[in-house]
């Protein structure tokens, strides 16, 4: 299996709004922890080391600047 990169979300705007909603009212540090908890939950769900490493590399490469 490889990381699926084609658009897959049925309701992208809805998901995005839910993500923003989850962060509402949190300070910087709490937001950061929320994201981290999310990453860990999703990573465990995926459970495939190769895919996770591919996602890590992709995420890192897509960042702009330092």
């Amino acid at each position: 299996m490889t990381l699926r990169t084609e658009p897959r979300l049925a309701d992208p705007d809805g998901f995005y709004a839910a993500l923003m909603e989850a962060h509402r009212g949190l300070d910087e540090a709490a937001s950061r922890r929320l994201d981290a908890r999310l990453v860990i939950l999703l990573a465990n769900h995926i459970g495939d080391d190769a895919i996770l490493r591919e996602a890590l590399a992709l995420a890192r490469a897509a960042g702009r600047g330092a």
Binding site: A29, R32, R33, L34, D35, A36, R37, V39, I40, L41
Partner: peptide, 10 residues
């Protein structure tokens, strides 16, 4: 620090 605390919270 955020990841460590996130892991512990979960």
């Amino acid at each position: 620090l955020a990841y460590r605390d996130a892991v512990l919270e979960l």
